[in-house]
C-alpha cells in the first residue's frame, strides 16, 4: 500500500488501520535510521516506540503538504536530535566527551557483527557535527535525494550538498587511516 493510500485510509476514519500500516512499513527502516545515531539496541528500541507515539499523536495534524515518508523521517530525526542533546548535556555535566562515550559503545556493542572498516565508519559518523551526520546518513545509507532530505531537515539543497561534501571528506580521511 502506498503512503497516499494510507493517508486516504486515515482520512476516511480508519485511523488505527492506517497507523498499523505505517508501523508495518516503517518499523525496520526507522530502526536502522535511529541505530546509526544511537549506539545501543535498547536505546533505539525505546526511541523507536517514542517515535511511533509522536507519529500517532501528530497524524491528525498531517496536512499532506509533504510526503508521508519525509514527514515520518522528520519526526524520527527530531527525536534522535533531542536524544543526542540530552546525552550531550549528561556528558557535559559529568565532564565526559560524548563522542568518546559513543565510540566506546560501538566497541562494546555485543550485537556488532561487522568488520573493522565498518566499525571505523560508524565511529567516524559519531565524530561529525549533528547536521552533517544526519545529511550523510540520509544520503549515503538511506539513498534519499537531496530534495527529500531538504524536506526532512528544512534546509536548502545547496547547503545539504555542501554538508554532505564536508561529511564525506571527513569520513574518507578517517577511513584512510586504516589503510
Amino acid at each position: 500500500m502506498t503512503d497516499r493510500q494510507i493517508i486516504d485510509l486515515y482520512r476516511e476514519g480508519s485511523c488505527e488501520k492506517a497507523f498499523n500500516l505505517i508501523v508495518e512499513q516503517y518499523t525496520e527502516r526507522l530502526y536502522w535510521h535511529i541505530r546509526r545515531f544511537l549506539c545501543n539496541h535498547e536505546d533505539v528500541n525505546d526511541l523507536l516506540q517514542d517515535v511511533f507515539i509522536k507519529i500517532w499523536a501528530a497524524l491528525p495534524s498531517f496536512r499532506g503538504e509533504s510526503q508521508l515518508f519525509t514527514w515520518i523521517y522528520r519526526i524520527a530525526t527530531n527525536e534522535v536530535l533531542n536524544y543526542l542533546r540530552k546525552q550531550r548535556f549528561k556528558a557535559l555535566v559529568s565532564f565526559q566527551d560524548v563522542t568518546e562515550i559513543l565510540e566506546k559503545k560501538i566497541d562494546e556493542d555485543a550485537r556488532f557483527n561487522g568488520n573493522e572498516i565498518q566499525r571505523e565508519l560508524l565511529k567516524a559518523l559519531q565524530r561529525l557535527p549533528e547536521k552533517q551526520r544526519i545529511v550523510f546518513s540520509l544520503r549515503y545509507f538511506d539513498d534519499l535525494t537531496y530534495e527529500q532530505i531538504s524536506e526532512i531537515t528544512n534546509t536548502s539543497v545547496g547547503a545539504l550538498k555542501a554538508s554532505y561534501h564536508y561529511a564525506s571528506n571527513k569520513i574518507k580521511a578517517d577511513l584512510e587511516k586504516l589503510f
Partner: peptide, 13 residues
C-alpha cells in the same frame, strides 16, 4: 571511495 566498499552501506548489527 565510499562506493568502492559495498559492505559499508550495510548496518553491521
Amino acid at each position: 571511495l565510499l562506493e568502492s566498499i559495498p559492505e559499508l552501506k550495510k548496518m553491521p548489527y
